[in-house]
Design a protein around this nucleic acid. Structure first.
Length: 362
DNA sequence: CTTATCTATATATGGCCGTA
DNA sequence: TACGGCCATATATAGATAAG
């Protein structure tokens, strides 16, 4: 089924939740697609403000929507298709099986509070229905004077807030998160996102290895360094859709003794993974590589010269033209500078005209 | 010396992508 | 939409090496 890209615009671009959430709900050792599906859907359920009155509200996600959200997308002839093959359906089942059992065990009380009140699948119609629990996991605590020490919290509050500025939350871009290849990269990214404005994390080995990365088997634990190095390597190369690097650097060191140690992460503070912080560019030039075909470049923007009202729509071009196009962009940027001298401006415009005359011959 | 950790390697699994 | 080849990832294992 074709999944138009426009349809995808209504989805949340940012996944956001209370910092307490991971400590309360452990999603278990999901595979990479399971991680993508889980966080994408939780992202969609954010700020839904269900009412627990009689009209029970559940959210419905069709399989192709889930594939689109999770980034399981196939490109063909410039169109994007949601890939809902047998393997992806298996990932959806994995997500359902894992998340159905996710619950919070309230300390001291023998009470299990599930994350989801509804988590059902309709294989015939190809959709799932989801509703986050509204149970109270934390009762209100008052001091002797009746002041609220700890506010009452429901499960849904971990994902809903009237005013997020009032709560401790973390957030990250959905697309960029789902572009990560390994589950460990994603888990580490969640952690770094929590400290995006600090750039430093010092946490116990247990917290990093068991709670965050879920290295819950002897084999995984033995390979912890390789796993962490690989995840850090992938995150270090992470770029947003515009091509900006998210992290300038990420360094991991162990502090303490060999038996009792902490992980220390030092990294550049980051914001460019959040779509709202990515400035609109006039377009981009992307290298296209296809098997058994000469490489070409795909340009995604229009240029217009003063002699013609018709903009040139440049799509597929050679490397030579791609270079010129990039230079036109640079000249355009420079021309926006108000402090240019008359001479500089004339020269830049001359250059621009020259480039465009070459491009108009394509 | 004992034990934990590291490195290299093997194998299974699952994702990607082109083709039918 | 289904299939299959190819490649990256996940996991396990053994021998080498370093810490205590």
């Amino acid at each position: 089924m074709i999944f138009e890209e426009k349809k995808g615009e209504r989805f949340q671009k940012v996944i956001k939740y209370d910092k307490q959430m991971p400590a309360i709900f452990d999603f278990g050792d999901l595979d990479a697609n399971g991680e993508r599906i889980t966080y994408s859907i939780l992202g969609e359920l954010r700020d839904s403000f269900f009412t627990s009155e009689k009209n029970e509200t559940v959210s419905r996600f069709y399989f192709d929507e889930i594939a689109f959200l999770a980034g399981n997308i196939q490109k063909r002839n410039g169109s994007k298709y949601a890939r809902v093959d047998a393997k992806f359906k298996k990932s959806i089942d994995g997500f359902l099986d894992n998340l159905r059992n996710v619950h919070y065990l309230v300390p001291k009380l023998d009470k299990r509070i599930p994350l989801f009140a509804t988590l059902a699948k309709d294989s015939q119609e190809k959709f799932i229905e989801v509703k986050i629990s509204e149970e109270i996991y934390q009762r209100e605590v008052l001091d002797d004077f009746g002041n609220v020490l700890v506010p009452e919290k429901r499960v849904i509050d971990l994902f809903n807030s009237i005013n997020w500025a009032d709560s401790q939350y973390l957030e990250f871009g959905r697309k960029i998160h789902n572009s990560l290849k390994s589950k460990y990269s994603m888990r580490l990214y969640h952690l770094l996102a929590e400290f995006r404005s600090t750039g430093r994390i010092i946490k116990s080995s247990k917290y990093i290895e068991e709670d965050i990365l879920k290295l819950n088997a002897p084999g995984k634990l033995k390979n912890r360094n390789a796993i962490i190095d690989k995840a850090v390597e992938e995150l270090s190369e992470l770029k947003n859709e515009k091509g900006d690097k998210i992290f300038e650097f990420i360094n991991v060191t162990k502090v303490g003794t060999k038996k009792d140690y902490q992980y220390r992460f030092d990294f550049s503070k980051f914001t460019l993974d959040l779509p709202r912080n990515v400035k609109e560019s006039s377009g981009g030039v992307e290298k296209v590589l296809k098997k058994n075909q000469p490489e070409y470049f795909r340009a995604n923007f229009q240029i217009q010269d003063e002699f013609s009202n018709e903009p040139y729509n440049i799509i597929d071009i050679t490397e030579e033209y791609a270079l010129i196009l990039t230079q036109v962009q640079e000249v355009n940027t420079k021309l926006k500078d108000e402090h240019l001298t008359k001479f500089e401006r004339t020269e830049l415009e001359k250059t621009r005209r020259l480039f465009i005359s070459v491009l108009s011959k394509i």
